[in-house]
Amino acid sequence: MAMTITQRCLGCYACEQVCPNQAIEILAGIFTIIAELCQECIDDFSVPQCSAICPAEEAILDRHGYAVNPLGSLTGVPAEIRSRWMV
């Protein structure tokens, strides 16, 4: 039971600031979630805080491996337009 971070992460530290369990680990500029510490915020908040503040689409996965914020969900740019420009 834990959230995970993908290669879409921008390294902005937002999740680190809001995680109630200090589960975000940053080594050599790479952000990961320590599975043993992550409780998916179940006891603390209605939604996992990392996924609530993360600005990068597809950067946070839930325990099943699905992107909590899929392409288009944060920027409003449809996935087909985003991929056309590759940004």
Binding site: T4, I5, T6, Q7, R8, C9, L10, G11, E25, G29, I30, F31, T32, I33, I34, A35, E58, L61, G65, A67, S83, M86, V87
Partner: peptide
């Protein structure tokens, strides 16, 4: 920092 990798999303393991 990741990059323009549009392949499979892989969780990073701590």
């Amino acid at each position: 920092m990741g990059g323009l990798n549009h392949g499979i999303l892989e969780p990073r393991l701590a």
